[in-house]
């Protein structure tokens, strides 16, 4: 029972990732793409947590943490760039 629910949740997460990717491709402005990218990374963190659950390996959580940290920095830097250029 729990297994099925977890697979269903993982499927929904994958769908969310695909829709964010669609917005990333559609644009239209650079800001839209960055928003889509931000959402994609957060969804990807959840994806990594699902992978950790499926494999039963806690070490993947560190990957999720570092990924979140780097994506946050990335979004901030790109936003700064959009604001005034380098």
């Amino acid at each position: 029972m729990a297994e099925i629910l977890i697979y269903l949740a993982a499927t929904l997460t994958a769908l969310a990732l695909l829709m964010a990717l669609a917005r990333f491709i559609m644009g239209p402005s650079p800001a839209d793409r960055v928003v889509a990218f931000d959402v994609m990374t957060i969804v990807a963190i959840t994806g990594i947590i699902f992978a950790a659950l499926a494999e039963g390996r806690g070490i993947y959580l560190d990957v999720a943490l570092v990924y979140g940290l780097l994506s946050f920095l990335g979004v901030i830097v790109i936003a700064r760039f959009l604001e005034k250029g380098f």
């Binding site: 629910l5 977890i6 269903l8 949740a9 993982a10 929904l12 997460t13 769908l15 969310a16 990732l17 695909l18 829709m19 964010a20 917005r23 959402v39 957060i42 969804v43 959840t46």
Partner: peptide, 11 residues
């Protein structure tokens, strides 16, 4: 499942 549905709604 609840969390995943919120992610889906967000996207």
């Amino acid at each position: 499942l609840g969390g995943a549905s919120f992610l889906f709604l967000g996207s």
